[in-house]
Design a protein around this nucleic acid. Structure first.
Lengths: 199, 199
DNA sequence: CGATTAATGTGGCCACTGCCAACATTCTAG
DNA sequence: CTAGAATGTTGGCAGTGGCCACATTAATCG
C-alpha cells in the first residue's frame, strides 16, 4: 500500500505501532499513554487519531500483531517434527515461549475484557487463526490415532487452557521459578503428563 | 478494631471497599476510578486517602478479600467428599466457579503485573494461603497413593495452571461456551482427564 | 500543468483523573 | 477541659483521552 515515503511523516501508522510496543514494554499496558506514544513518534498529541480511532484501537492493533506472531511461532516450532504429538508439544511450548518473550503483547492480547473482540474484528480473526493452528495439530493427531477421537475442539481447548494458564501465571510471576528455562521445563513436564496419559 | 460507629462517617474503609467492588463490577478494573468510589461512598474525593495509600492500595485490598473468599470456596467445596481425588476435583471446580461468580475480583487478583505482590504483603499472604489449600489436597492424595509421589508443589502448580487457564479464558469469553453450566462441564472434563490419567 | 479536494498533522480546549498541601472538624487521651 | 491525633473537605497541579477548528501537504482531475 505505502511503499515510498507516502505522506507528511513518512509512515506514521507503523511508527506509532512500534513506539506503542516499546512503550508498553517499558511501562506496561496500564501506564501506556496515547500522548506519550505520539511524543515518541515525534508528532503532535492528536496525530494518532488519524490512524487509530482511539486508545483501544491502538491496543487492538498491537494485539492483532501479537496474534500473528504467535501463530507463526507455533507453526515454526512444529516444523521438522516427525511425530504429530511432538508437533503438538512444540506448539504448546512455543505458546509459553511467546508469552515469556512478549509479555506485554500477551497481556494486551488476552486481558482486554472483550471490547477487542467485538469492536476490532481484525484482532478477533487473528486470534481465531492462532487457535485454529493448535486445533489443526490436535486433529492430525486424532487422524493418526495418537489422540482419542472425540470433539477435537474440546481437546484443543484443553490444550489451550493448559498452556494459557502456565503462560499467565508465569508472566505475572506466580510460579516459583526464576529463569525462563525453569518455566519451560515446568511447561514441558505439564505437557508430557497430559500427552502421556492418552498416548 | 472498630465495633461501634467509630468516627465521622461511620466506617468509611468498609464502605469504600464495597463501593469499589460494585464499581469494578460495573465498569471493569480499567474504568475503575478512585474519585467515583469516593462519590459513591458519599465522601469527598480525598477522603479515601486516609484509608488507602493510593489507587493500587485499594485494588490490593479488593484482591486480598478475593483471595480469602477463594480459599473459603475451595475448602467448602471439598467438605464432605470422601475421596481425596474428589476433594481435589471439587476444589478445582470451585476455583473456576469463583472466577465466574466474581470475575472482577479475579481480574484484580491476577492481572496486576506484581506491584500487588511486592508492595502489599497482605494480598500476597492470602494468595499463598489459597495456593496452600490446593497444595494440601494434592499432598493428601499423594499420602493415600492416589497421585504419583514426586514434588507435590509441581503437581499442585499443574492443577493450578489448569484451572487458572480455564477460568481466565472463560471470563474473557474466549471459550465457545455460553452458559456457566457449560463452562463448568468443560472444566470437569478437563479435570477428569487429568486425574484419570494417574488414578 | 494548475486548481480543487481529500488526507494528514497541529494547537486549543474540556472534563476528568490521581495525588499533594492546607485547612476544618471530630474523636480520644491525659 | 484541653491538646493532639484521626478523619474528612476544599483547592490546586500536572497529566490524560478525546473533540474541534485550522494548517499543510499530497493526490486527482480539469
Amino acid at each position: 500500500m505505502r511503499r515510498r515515503k507516502p505522506y507528511h511523516h513518512g509512515n506514521l501508522r507503523e511508527a506509532l505501532l512500534e513506539a506503542a510496543i516499546r512503550l508498553i514494554a517499558e511501562v506496561g499496558p496500564a501506564g501506556f499513554t496515547l500522548r506519550e506514544v505520539a511524543r515518541r513518534a515525534g508528532v503532535s498529541h492528536n496525530a494518532p487519531y488519524r490512524h487509530f480511532r482511539d486508545r483501544d484501537d491502538l491496543m487492538a492493533a498491537v494485539a492483532t500483531q501479537g496474534f500473528r506472531e504467535l501463530t507463526q511461532a507455533m507453526l515454526h516450532a512444529a516444523e521438522r517434527q516427525s511425530s504429530c504429538l511432538d508437533r503438538l508439544k512444540r506448539a504448546g511450548l512455543a505458546y509459553v515461549t511467546f508469552a515469556l518473550r512478549r509479555p506485554e503483547h500477551f497481556t494486551v492480547m488476552f486481558d482486554g475484557p472483550t471490547p477487542v473482540k467485538t469492536k476490532h474484528p481484525d484482532s478477533a480473526q487473528e486470534a481465531d487463526q492462532a487457535f485454529g493452528t493448535l486445533l489443526s495439530f490436535v486433529k492430525s493427531c486424532q487422524d493418526e490415532g495418537r489422540l482419542p477421537s472425540g470433539d477435537p475442539v474440546e481437546l484443543a481447548l484443553l490444550a489451550w487452557s493448559m498452556v494459557h494458564g502456565i503462560a499467565k501465571l508465569a508472566i505475572t510471576e506466580r510460579l516459583p521459578y526464576q529463569s525462563k528455562a525453569d518455566i519451560l521445563k515446568f511447561a514441558e513436564f505439564v505437557i508430557d503428563q497430559s500427552l502421556a496419559a492418552r498416548a
